[in-house]
C-alpha cells in the first residue's frame, strides 16, 4: 500500500498495454522475434490448409478408383466423372431451374417464418409471465415427438404445392429459434438486472439496452440451426408428396436409377446450404462483434 501513488492517472496509463514502449535497446530483438513468430503462424496455417486439401483429394481419388476400376457398381455409386457430366447435363436441361426456383421459395419462406415465429414466441415467453404460464408447457410438449411424422398430414392438409413444404420447414425450424431466444433472454448476469432496476429502467428499456443485445450470441446460434432445419424440412416435405422442387427431383431421379443425377443434385444442394450458412456466420461476426475482441 505504501508504494501506491496518490495521483492515479499515471498508474492507469501504465496498465494500458500499448502505453508500454519497448526500450530502444531491445527494439530490434522484439522486432525480430515478432517477425519469426508471424512467419511460424503463417507456415502453420498453410500446413493445415494443405492437409485438409490433401485429404479431400485423397477421398476423391479413392472414389474415382473404386468406381472407374469397377469395384463398385455405377448404380450404387457413380464415378466423379459421371457426376460432373450429370451436373452439366442437368444445368443445360430445362428441368433443373424451375425446380430450383420452387425449392428456393419454399426454403425462403420456411426459414423466414420459422425464424420470425421462434423469435416472437421466445420474446413473449421470456418477457411476459402470462404468456409463459399459458404456452410454455405446450411449446415444450410439441417438441418431444419427431416432427417429421407431421409431413404426410401436412401434405393432406396443405396440398402438393409449396404450402405444405413451407409448413413442415417452419415446424422444424421454429423450435431451436424459440428455445435459443428464450435461453438468451433469460441468461443474464443478475447484477446487470439489479443495475438496470436501480436506474429505474422499466421492462422495455431493460429489454432494449440489456436483454436483447445480451441474447444475440445465443440467438445467432439458433439462426444457424433454424437455417439447416428449414432446408431439411422443405426437402423432406418434397420427398413425401410434391410435383416440383429439388427433393421431388432427387426422388424421381432415384426412382429412374439416374444415380449420377441424384449425386449432382445432392452436391448442389449441399453447396447452396453451406454457402448460406457461411453467410450467416459472417453476419454473426458483424452483429456480435464484441465476442471477437
Amino acid at each position: 500500500m505504501n508504494m501506491a501513488p496518490p495521483n492515479l492517472t499515471s498508474a492507469a496509463t501504465a496498465q494500458a498495454p500499448e502505453a508500454v514502449a519497448p526500450p530502444a535497446a531491445h527494439a530490434d530483438t522484439i522486432q525480430k522475434f515478432l517477425a519469426t513468430e508471424l512467419a511460424k503462424q503463417r507456415r502453420e496455417r498453410i500446413a493445415n490448409r494443405a492437409m485438409a486439401i490433401s485429404f479431400g483429394l485423397f477421398v476423391l481419388l479413392v472414389w474415382a478408383i473404386a468406381t472407374e476400376g469397377g469395384f463398385v457398381h455405377a448404380l450404387i455409386i457413380p464415378s466423379p466423372f459421371d457426376t460432373v457430366e450429370a451436373t452439366i447435363r442437368l444445368m443445360r436441361s430445362n428441368i433443373l431451374w424451375p425446380n430450383v426456383w420452387v425449392t428456393l421459395q419454399e426454403i425462403f419462406w420456411a426459414f423466414l417464418l420459422g425464424l420470425g415465429s421462434g423469435c416472437l414466441l421466445g420474446v413473449g415467453v421470456a418477457m411476459f409471465a402470462g404468456v409463459r404460464a399459458t404456452l410454455y408447457p405446450y411449446l415444450v410438449a410439441i417438441q418431444a415427438p419427431p416432427k417429421i411424422v407431421l409431413a404426410p398430414i401436412f401434405v393432406t392438409w396443405f396440398g402438393f404445392d409449396m404450402a405444405s413444404k413451407i409448413a413442415i420447414g417452419v415446424v422444424m425450424s421454429f423450435f431451436p429459434m424459440f428455445l435459443n431466444t428464450l435461453t438468451g433472454l433469460t441468461s443474464v448476469d443478475p447484477n446487470a438486472i439489479k443495475l438496470m432496476k436501480s436506474l429505474t429502467a422499466g421492462r422495455w428499456k431493460t429489454f432494449r439496452y440489456l436483454l436483447l443485445p445480451n441474447a444475440l450470441p445465443i440467438m445467432m446460434a439458433g439462426v444457424k440451426l433454424c437455417w439447416t432445419l428449414a432446408v431439411l424440412g422443405v426437402i423432406v416435405g418434397e420427398f413425401v408428396g410434391a410435383s416440383a422442387g429439388i427433393g421431388y427431383l432427387i426422388y424421381a431421379m432415384n426412382f429412374q436409377l439416374d444415380i449420377a443425377g441424384v449425386f449432382s443434385l445432392i452436391i448442389l444442394l449441399s453447396l447452396f446450404t453451406l454457402f448460406v450458412y457461411q453467410f450467416i456466420e459472417w453476419l454473426e461476426g458483424r452483429i456480435i462483434f464484441w465476442k471477437q475482441l
Binding site: 447484477n191 443485445p213 445480451n214 462483434f289
Partner: peptide, 23 residues
C-alpha cells in the same frame, strides 16, 4: 457491484452514458 457489469457491446464511453440514457 463486485463485478463491473459493463455491457460488452458498448464502448467505455457508451457504458458511462448508459444511466443518462435510461433516465
Amino acid at each position: 457491484f463486485q463485478t463491473s457489469v459493463l455491457f460488452p457491446w458498448r464502448t467505455v464511453r457508451q457504458n458511462v452514458e448508459l444511466p443518462g440514457i435510461i433516465l
